[in-house]
Design a protein around this nucleic acid. Structure first.
Lengths: 196, 196
DNA sequence: GTCATTCCATAGCGACCACTACAGAAATTG
DNA sequence: CAATTTCTGTAGTGGTCGCTATGGAATGAC
């Protein structure tokens, strides 16, 4: 017979605590968020945090994964569901303008902003690799659309992909700097008029 | 008669020390740079730093000013010297691609990246205000060009200015993420094809 | 020379950092 | 019931943070 785990059970909701940690890391970034800040918003003591999540860095990695599924999935969804890369990128930019300015949550993108100026090269590098992987994914889709004739033959796929990445990062930064949703949606539309 | 200052003279080059501090803040950001790091690269002890510059934050403010004159002036120069805002922005983006990837110095823009995720709201806000002031300056130039007919009447000056700001910030971030000068110059050119 | 002034090097301040030792509390096992 | 296991709250650990007290060194004034 399967039995429940022995010993004293955990006295807090792990998922809820993870969600609170996500919001705090999202708003303040990795290094500016202290373990004391985390335990306060998670409503637990330091030993509970370390027992449940390992250490600050492991918690952050779990936060990044959780964020990618909950808040960052719109981008992959847009690229996947639209029939062309052009339509996918247009939708991704439009939804980014909306997601990055949604009331009641931190502005901008955690993957873009949470590990800049980070003492730990591993943490900063992990998020950089995520960003660059997205740019490479877009580049591959552009290359595919060039091969099918959907995009003109002379198109530089890498440059166009970096342009899209730069616009997304710019939207995140502008959202953090106070731009409104309507402004960023118009910026996203304007950015698409550079599409070949 | 004017006499030299009394007492023991300073035993280091203040400008050279400020330049070293600029490079370090540029590369690592405000909070990730410790006073111990600064005194090491500046070649002085902590009391000399505090006597010459006040405290860490005052030193950073002086660094930001110095950076603005030495490394950030290309943007204002481009906007000022070109006959139209279009030409000014095009030159600014082209030169940003070059400046942000120049070998032998940190990548990207200090004003954009050095105070993100900063515990001190004043420091982060000061750089945000600089960024937003640049966007407002571009907006004013666009409005002027609309009034002279250089730009079409229906142009949304604020949105176009935010677009330019987002592209510049995206170029800085992409430079930090490893994009090459050639790639960013091509991105800058592509971004201009969204100009009305 | 002597004094006043200014700067420098050492050494260390309290505060906060990520993290943990320890003991008691709450569950299952028998 | 007692024994075992697991988690929790308190109270710290050593280390680094920005910053400074102190005493001696290097200058100009006289």
């Amino acid at each position: 017979m399967e039995s429940r785990r022995r010993g004293r059970p955990r006295s807090f909701d792990r998922e809820a605590a993870l969600a609170q940690a996500t919001l705090l890391f999202w708003e303040r970034g990795y290094e500016a968020t202290s373990v004391a800040d985390l335990t306060r918003v998670m409503g637990i003591g330091p030993p509970s945090l370390y027992a449940a999540f390992g250490d600050k860095r492991a918690l952050f990695e779990e936060v990044v994964d959780s964020y990618g599924h909950a808040f960052g999935a719109f981008a992959a969804r847009a690229l996947e569901q639209e029939p062309t890369t052009r339509a996918g990128v247009a939708r991704m930019l439009r939804e980014a303008a909306e997601e990055y300015t949604r009331p009641g949550r931190p502005r901008g993108c955690l993957v873009i902003s949470a590990a800049t100026n980070c003492t730990s090269e591993e943490v900063e590098g992990a998020l950089r690799e995520r960003r660059n992987a997205t740019v490479r994914d877009i580049q591959r889709r552009i290359e595919h659309d060039i091969s099918t004739g959907e995009l003109p033959e002379g198109t530089d796929a890498r440059v166009l992909a970096v342009y899209v990445g730069a616009v997304v990062q710019g939207l995140s930064q502008q959202a953090r700097d106070g731009a409104t949703r309507a402004e960023l949606e118009a910026v996203a539309a304007a950015a698409m008029s550079a599409w070949p």
